[in-house]
Amino acid sequence: MNQTMPSNPNRPRWLNALGLITLALFGVGAYLSLVVSPPDVNQGQLIRIMYAHVSVAWVCFLAVIASAVFGMLFLWRGRKIHDVLAVASAESALFFAGLTIIGGMTYSKPTLNTYWTWDAKLTLTALLFALLVGYFIVRGLLEDPQRRGRVSAVIGIIVLASLPFNYLAAEWFRTLHPAKSINLDGSGVQMDPTMLQVLLFNVGVAAFAFLYFLFERVRIGRIEIAREEALEAPSGSAEVVRV
């Protein structure tokens, strides 16, 4: 095993700075949603869960879209960095989907007195979680990097295409059964301006966290590619491989 390492295995400064900024913003977001935001008329203090829950959910869908777009770029150009970006987005999407489900269950226990409702959005996220797990199962089974990148890009595109249908189906499934329908979101469009600002700030925080995860994962991905290529290359020509 030769010791080929990329020129800079350490985390660059700007990435550390981004991480610290994200952490600081997270603190501000927590302060805004726990202290500054007024309690909700209907849900009282429980509304504070919503800030965390809704923001991770939105960023989760953003990450799914990003993964499919990077996958398409990989299919089009065949550059490994796009595959790394697609995986990085998919991993974040899986993480945020998990957080969304946990947040949704936490939210629905005190408001609806049950951990699981077949609410459209919660069902959609559960399906999305299953789809993303499938993405990583297949990825783990493929050895050849090119084929692995292609197949995962294809699955990423299918996952993105499935979102509107899953949403429609889950939504209609609910609305066609008025007996069961309990309006989960007391928020909706008519929202207090302070609350809306706090929510949007928290969405921004989650987006920053996504960006940080993305860049950090890409950094690791570059090291992985360099290592894979170093192992493939004949031992005589062991050079630093730039990606």
Binding site: L131, I137, V138, I155, S162, A169, F173
Partner: peptide, 16 residues
């Protein structure tokens, strides 16, 4: 693997 991958995608089909 096949059912694990495809069933989440066909949920809207089954439901509809």
């Amino acid at each position: 693997l096949l059912p694990v991958l495809m069933f989440p995608v066909v949920v809207p089909i089954l439901l509809a």
